[in-house]
């Protein structure tokens, strides 16, 4: 298969970027999208040009590092699929493919398609944890039974891989799905209760400080999330934050 790629090129955070066009040939349907990018880079290096920088690591859809906005959608056209798990058979031979970085003020471009998502780290640092030391003797793991339904919901919220597709896809570049997934995970578990109210306040405040947009409930994040994180989490966070403000806890 052959493709025409339109790729965002940007030298560094301060430089101006632009879309560039590259032909790529000899691609097979079994190649992953990132392997197609490897082929392009191999070609660029051999031609003495600068290869396209992009983030990637595990290439099995779990580390959350890959982050490409492909043909107008975060992680491309397939649902519940990260860029690294997207295969070229999902595209038509001869197609033109647009490849852009996540676009958000809170995610400045590092180079080409790689962006800086440390805003997510700072949000977790603001409260995305249970304050417990590794003393070696907390309660026995089975001391507090957790209803299976709650444990399952907490798990589903916790499967967020922090890739930022929700931000990239949201028309407002809002980080609500990411933040609410972490807030929900702890809100659903007994271990998360003591800090529940202060946690939601601190995390929302940090989210606002980072310059993400506001949630307008379009639901695009849920559709494009490679792990299918639910909007239920956003509602839960809205509820908890309201409660924390009303009760002043």
């Amino acid at each position: 298969m052959d493709f025409t790629l339109k790729i965002w090129r940007q030298e560094g955070p301060q430089e101006q970027g632009r879309m560039e066009t590259y032909p790529v040939t000899g691609i097979t349907g079994d190649m992953s999208f990132l392997e197609m990018m490897d082929v392009l880079n191999d070609q660029l290096i051999r031609d003495g040009q600068d290869p396209v920088a992009f983030d990637h690591d595990c290439r099995e859809g779990i580390c959350g590092m890959c982050s490409m906005f492909i043909n107008g959608e975060a992680h491309g056209p397939n649902r519940k699929t990260t860029t690294c798990q997207l295969h070229m058979r999902s595209f038509k031979d001869g197609e033109t493919i647009y490849i852009e970085p996540w676009r958000a003020a809170a995610f400045p471009v590092v180079k080409d398609l790689a962006v800086d998502r440390s805003a997510f780290d700072r949000i977790i640092q603001s409260g995305g944890y249970v304050s417990v030391n590794s003393s070696g003797n907390p309660l026995d793991a089975n001391a507090i039974p957790v209803p299976k339904a709650d444990a399952d919901d907490a798990f589903n919220a916790a499967t967020c891989i922090g890739c930022g597709a929700c931000v990239a896809t949201c028309k407002n570049a809002s980080a609500m799905l990411f933040v609410s997934a972490k807030v929900s995970q702890f809100a659903l578990l007994p271990q998360g209760q003591p800090e529940r109210m202060s946690r939601v306040q601190r995390m929302v405040d940090q989210m606002d400080k980072e310059g993400f947009g506001n949630c307008t409930n379009t639901g695009a994040c849920e559709v494009e999330c490679p792990k299918g994180i639910s909007l239920d989490n956003i509602a839960r966070m809205n509820r908890d934050y309201l409660k924390s403000k009303v009760t002043g806890e």
Binding site: V130, L139, F155
Partner: peptide, 10 residues
């Protein structure tokens, strides 16, 4: 024990 206390959803 440690992981459960941290809120790991086993």
């Amino acid at each position: 024990d440690q992981c459960v206390a941290q809120g790991v959803p086993f």
